[in-house]
């Protein structure tokens, strides 16, 4: 399933870019993410705790930055995480692009998300809704963090 989120962050493009390319700091804007640490220059590991109704997931996994193209203002990354208790996980490919926007920089996040294993038995539409909400919150956090001058 694919989603697209867009938001305008009230900072100039360069500053947003520099912020976004520092993964642990960006990760702190994702609700439920904790313990992010670098494995190497391009990959990181960490946890994501998320509750979808009665289901509490504790997803443990990695994120890899596949592309950082500052000339095109585009970055691609992928994340893989599994929950042992439920038996399942997620895979996401994300593409971030920055464009000039009214009063700041327009951030566009395109995500292709796959739900693996038993989690999928709960119902994909719900998960999609949740993921959508999560990304929206992420964009808001990002905005407020940068807005604060972070």
């Amino acid at each position: 399933m694919t989603f697209t989120q867009e938001c305008v962050i009230a900072v100039e493009r360069e500053r947003l870019w520099d912020f976004l390319m520092e993964v642990p700091r960006v990760a702190s804007c994702v609700p439920g993410v904790e313990g992010v640490e670098a494995i190497d220059a391009k990959s990181y590991r960490g946890n994501l705790r998320v509750q979808i109704g009665p289901i509490r997931l504790s997803l443990h996994g990695t994120m890899t930055v596949d592309e950082q193209d500052r000339a095109a203002w585009r970055a691609r990354m992928r994340a893989e995480a599994n929950d042992r208790r439920v038996g399942g996980g997620i895979r996401a490919r994300m593409s971030l692009t920055l464009a000039p926007g009214e009063g700041g920089t327009r951030l566009r996040i395109e995500t292709d998300l796959a739900i693996l294993g038993r989690i999928g038995e709960f119902g994909q539409p719900v998960i999609k809704k949740k993921a959508d909400a999560l990304l929206e919150e992420f964009a808001q956090n990002l905005g407020s963090k940068l807005g604060q001058g972070g």
Partner: peptide, 12 residues
């Protein structure tokens, strides 16, 4: 509802 989800191991 609960036992169904427990059987699916979504809730433990």
């Amino acid at each position: 509802a609960l036992v169904t989800m427990m059987r699916q191991r979504l809730v433990s």
